[in-house]
Amino acid sequence: MAEATASSAEQEPVALSPGEALRLRIRNHRGLLTGFGIVCFVSLLAILAPLIAPYDPSEQVLARRLLPPVWVEGGTWDHLFGTDTLGRDYLSRLLYGGRISLLIGLGAASIGCVIGVTLGICAGYFGGRIDQALMYLFTCQLALPGLLLILALVVFIRPSLPILIALIGALGWTLYFTVVRSATMQMRQFDYITAARALGSNRRQVLFYEIMPNLLNQIIVVFTLEVGFAILAEAALSFLGVGVQPPTPAWGLMINEGRSAMFFRPWLVILPGVALFILVIGINLMGDGVRDVTAPENRN
């Protein structure tokens, strides 16, 4: 396989700069383009929600409670996706909810990423005492159930969206940590690290120029997992009453609100579920695609 790539690479036009090659690979990567399209589309809908939403998402019209979507018998064009138990327009709520869910998903996953990757690189590269200390922290975190910890913390801090994002993010670093730590440990022994040090690279240059780019694959994969996880964590917290506070719409919250009526009004759960599913798929496709086009070793 490797030989095949080598020979096909030789046939490639001579001077393809990395930028051009990258653009070419992006254009040929269907998964990446699809994922990017989905994420863009969902983000756009969320950002433009105030402009395109037909109703105020928290406006309750109790007379029009639990209307089914337009394609189900009894649905009307006034409410494309129907209404919920309090008679709020479901399409509007979905659009506004996308803002919260995206914010929580991306925000929390990013916070966890920064914490986990930093600690993981430190533990993996420096080893010894630093590694021992961080591993101790890591096992402590693993021993505590995350949601319970957030619950306990929320008792002291009034729940608000930024705090929720910070809490979910701060507790979502463990996966990044293990993955980055073991990858760095493995990489530390490679000769190219020694070569970089022998070239006079300082510690910062070794970490950011040599090690970081090689961790990108793993980080992207974990990131896409964590986005989905953060959105679901919000759902769970909302269910327990400490997450997003009603009437603010959020997909997780909507799923939980719809659960009581799930058997007779399945769309209440299905619609936000599908939205969540599409977003997570999009992020995963994008993550895989970014990994594929940036990782030269995986192009066989």
């Binding site: 490679f190 000769d191 190219y192 022998a198 006079g200 040599e210 990782a295 030269p296 070793e297």
Partner: peptide, 19 residues
């Protein structure tokens, strides 16, 4: 030191950064 002394390693597969 780096400017005056340089290494060449045994394994050409691990001595170059794959990225």
């Amino acid at each position: 030191i780096a400017r005056r002394i340089q290494p060449i390693f045994q394994d050409p597969y691990s001595s170059l950064n794959p990225r």
